[in-house]
Design a protein around this nucleic acid. Sequence first.
DNA 1: GCTTTCCTCCCCATAATTGGGGATTTCCTG
DNA 2: CAGGAAATCCCCAATTATGGGGAGGAAAGC
Lengths: 211, 211
Amino acid sequence: MIRILLFEDNKNLRESLSLYLAGTDGLWLSGAYANATDAVKLVRKYQPDVVLMDIQMPGISGIEAMRAIKKVNSEVKVLIQTVFENDDKVFAAICAGANGYIIKTPKPENYVQAITDVYNGGSHLSPSIAAKVLAMFQSQFVMKEQTYVSLTPREKEVLQCMVKGMSYKMIADACNISFSTVHSHIKNIYEKLHVNSAPEAVVKALEMRLV
Amino acid sequence: MIRILLFEDNKNLRESLSLYLAGTDGLWLSGAYANATDAVKLVRKYQPDVVLMDIQMPGISGIEAMRAIKKVNSEVKVLIQTVFENDDKVFAAICAGANGYIIKTPKPENYVQAITDVYNGGSHLSPSIAAKVLAMFQSQFVMKEQTYVSLTPREKEVLQCMVKGMSYKMIADACNISFSTVHSHIKNIYEKLHVNSAPEAVVKALEMRLV
DNA sequence: GCTTTCCTCCCCATAATTGGGGATTTCCTG
DNA sequence: CAGGAAATCCCCAATTATGGGGAGGAAAGC
């Protein structure tokens, strides 16, 4: 029996969803609320397995509520539901530890599927959300391959020091080489990266994942 | 009618899956192959909507094949299937542009669902894979705002310029303010971020997502 | 053996940044 | 209205970075 707690401000959706979930085998709806003000208290009281949380509600937002819930009980699975596919919201929800993110749908079977998925330790993302997440993922980790540059080991080492914000003097000390040598390496790095200042080199190094 | 191309080295799975997909309304199986050697050629010939690709096959790996396919036709949706939940493989597949990633299952309905999801422009991730992706996502963006600093609009603007590698003079020009003012703003930024050089400020700005 | 690459170090001069002061205006809030 | 935050500007001095040379040694490849 999967114990569920529902937070949804839309009266119509809340009631129809409550009816459906309560009538589904294997699910037990502990309660349904129009706002997340007492979310933490309610989680403490009912010890649900899964919390179904609307992201936009009057008062405390779904994300804030989730963060608070996770703080007192990190075992509770939180399933975010929303009508919006806003990038920032998705991003924020995931960073706050959402176990799933579903777009509101008129098909209640989807809710049941998502609930069982997260209950079993997995995550559930609506297709459109999954696409967004994968796109964000790619943009973060796929580097531009057309501008490949090869730095020597020493140059990489120096560049890593630069990314840490170290001055020539500090780098010289850290690498056990002279100030002049650091200077030389950095001149070479600048030439290879086609930049002419430390900040530029640092940015380029980070976005090319050279460090 | 969704046109599908299947690559799967396991004879048993390939044949049973072929049978199921071919017999499903709305799907059209263009072909099923035991390896991805001629994947690009086959994609050119059959112009499928969705390619179902096993990740581990003799000869060319599913990821390499996908990369090649995407290169010649980025519109083709590629659905990766595997028995493994290996982090590296998942990571590599996503970075290479996979539209979905499903764990092999005895339930063929899951395949159909995944195929329709990616065909409609979404992505489909098996719950266990979705959990991995979200976990990776969180680990990348977790330590954000425990050290929250508030920069004024102007300071943010200047900081953004610094991230672009601009010098004081260039920033002054870009913001239509004097060199001295840029200097002042940067002094304030350094104090707020607890740094004392441009490279440090840039790194901190990027990792705190202030820009 | 010769060439190339990499790492090392130095000189010089100019340009840029940094840190310390201080000052004015505007705008907003208590 | 007083106080504060924000944005604007200036001076000065010290430090740091940048760009231009050159040069020697070690290792690897042809």
